[in-house]
Design a protein around this nucleic acid. Structure first.
Length: 492
RNA sequence: CGGGGCGUAGCGUAGUCCGGUAUCGCGCCACGUUUGGGACGUGGAGGCCGUCAGUUCGAAUCUGGCCGCCCCGACCA
């Protein structure tokens, strides 16, 4: 009763904010633009980390950790990268505070503790990492270097939103070095596929894989690959990027190696990352007015069991049965929580776990004991069924898989239904305003046209989809010839 | 940075025009009755009204400054 979230159809943005807060995922903090990720939200992030980390390891990567601070001189070494991030950097200028002589109990920055060189709080780690790699790479035998780091980064965003855009966020950033251009490109594409695989199979969110236009490219990259997903409100969200960095950073940081022929060459690089923004994608893809919906593969708790009883003795009897169900589920690697708190009533618990998105709920009471059954409720469909306790663990195992695939299917249908093809600018604007979603349209390939369309419609080219169908047409804006449609959308 | 809003108990709020130490709901604590969809009763605790200064016998309320947060844009993952 106390926790009410704004209905999706009334105000999507407010619905999202309410949901994040009420489902106990995260909260605004005392620091502008920074959030506190609460245990339930962090639990989901940990599941994401575990799955991704395994995929990185399985593709030959290892984890390491680099400093939070980057000396300004290193930061500015790769010019485009520095320029791209310059206007959103937090900068450390001093290393000490002291008591304020004019204001008892207050502190001031000690002017005598000014750093000789400012330190940049990393907005991304290419600079510090490539400066380090310089000392690690001498020969082709040192390559490829396949490293990932789990870290926090800071980007001083003007406007922030929980998970989608915060001043500080958690992410992983892979930074690899290769002997050949071909190998680096293969790595870039491989990691894009890892991301797409993860987002689709764990998060149950369908994505479009593609390449960014020059305008949208990562600062310092030769090519940026990305995955784009469509949220329930028809806006697109970039879910991950994988960059082919060419030799830009190798040249900026003078990272050379001797190849098999004994010749010196700069190494080829990639970097790739996904962030806590994925939490936003997860929330906006599946959740409803009742609250969060978590795909089973990422749910910290997959099944919650709620006893319905009269008196202590009644609870004891139910607990006995529940314990045996619990063990059987755990043996099948189903994470299960038994909520036998006497301080809340069943109805309250039902609502609470729905709000938090736990995929399955078992309710078990006196009449179930008599009939050897339980009530099983699905979070995604909000449907209930009465099932036999015997063989319950098998049923649940199957059902969890079913929910996982149903969620994906539903999201896919929604995405396909919101994907449009247009051939004129009028049609383009009309579809954006009336239907929103992904819009495929011909584009003349120039940054100017892209910019104009963005100014006039707020839609951006999300990507040039990989394996795009080649077809002759004319640009919806300039009328100039085009060989393929690109993917437009209004985006987060 | 532009536009809008807000700061009163853990949360959400009334009171502000018209100055007299603060309203209501949820939550919290105790006891009892309850428990198959957010229980009920009785009793109780909790506030330097964002902050600093001014006006006044007296300020949540009037005046001025400052700080902070949220929302909508521009910027971005």
């Amino acid at each position: 009763m106390s926790k009410v979230i704004t209905p999706r159809e009334k105000d999507y943005s407010k619905w999202y904010n309410d949901l994040v807060v009420e489902a106990d995922l995260a909260d605004h903090s005392a620091v502008r633009g920074c959030m506190v990720i609460k245990p339930h939200g962090y639990g989901i992030w940990e599941k994401m980390q575990q799955a991704l980390d395994k995929m990185f390891k399985d593709t030959g990567h290892v984890n390491a950790y680099f400093p939070l601070f980057i000396p300004k001189s290193l930061f500015e070494a790769e010019e485009k990268n520095a320029e791209g991030f310059a206007k959103e950097c937090a900068v450390v200028t001093h290393y000490r505070l002291k008591a304020d002589p004019n204001n008892k109990g207050k502190l001031i920055v000690d002017p005598e503790a000014k750093l000789e060189e400012e330190l940049i709080v990393r907005p991304t780690s290419e600079a510090i990492i490539w400066n380090t790699y310089k000392g690690w790479i001498e020969s082709y035998r040192d390559l490829p270097l396949l490293i990932n780091q789990w870290a926090n980064v800071v980007r001083w965003e003007m406007r922030t939103r929980l998970f989608l855009r915060t001043a500080e966020f958690l992410w992983q950033e892979g930074h690899t070095a290769h002997a050949t251009k071909q190998e680096a490109i293969e790595e870039t594409e491989k990691m894009l596929n890892v991301y797409a695989d993860f987002v689709e199979n764990f998060m149950a969110v369908p994505v479009v894989k593609g390449i960014k236009t020059a305008n949208e490219r990562f600062a310092g990259a030769d090519e940026t690959y990305c995955i784009e997903a469509l949220m329930q409100d028809g806006k697109a969200l970039q879910c991950g990027t994988s960059h082919f960095l060419g030799q830009n950073f190798a040249k900026a940081f003078d990272v050379k190696f001797t190849n098999k022929e004994g010749k010196l060459d700069h190494v080829w690089a990639t970097s790739w990352g996904v962030s806590t923004r994925l939490m936003g994608a997860l929330i906006m893809s599946h959740s409803d007015n009742q609250g969060l919906v978590i795909p089973p593969k990422l749910a910290p708790t997959q099944v919650v069991i709620i006893p319905i009883y009269k008196g202590e003795e009644g609870l004891k009897q139910i607990t006995e049965v529940v314990n045996s169900i619990k063990v059987k589920l755990q043996q099948r690697n189903v994470s299960v929580k038994y909520d036998d708190r006497d301080s809340q009533r069943p109805g309250w618990k039902f609502a609470e776990y729905e709000l938090k998105g736990i995929p399955l709920r078992i309710a078990i009471g006196e009449r179930d004991l008599a009939s050897g059954t339980v009530e099983l409720a699905r979070r995604d469909t909000l449907t209930k069924e009465v099932v036999k306790i015997e063989g319950l663990e098998l049923h649940i195992e199957t059902l969890l898989q079913q929910i996982q695939s149903d969620l994906y299917k539903k999201a896919l249908e929604r995405t396909v239904g919101s994907t449009h093809h247009v051939s004129t600018y009028e049609e383009f604007k009309k579809v954006l305003d009336e239907k929103s979603g992904f819009v495929y349209a011909h584009w003349d390939g120039t940054p100017e046209t892209e910019e104009k369309i963005k100014e006039e419609t707020k839609a951006t080219i999300r990507c040039i989809p990989l394996n795009n169908k080649q077809e002759n047409g004319v640009c919806i804006y300039s009328g100039k010839p085009s060989t393929q449609k690109v993917l437009f959308a209004r985006a987060y």
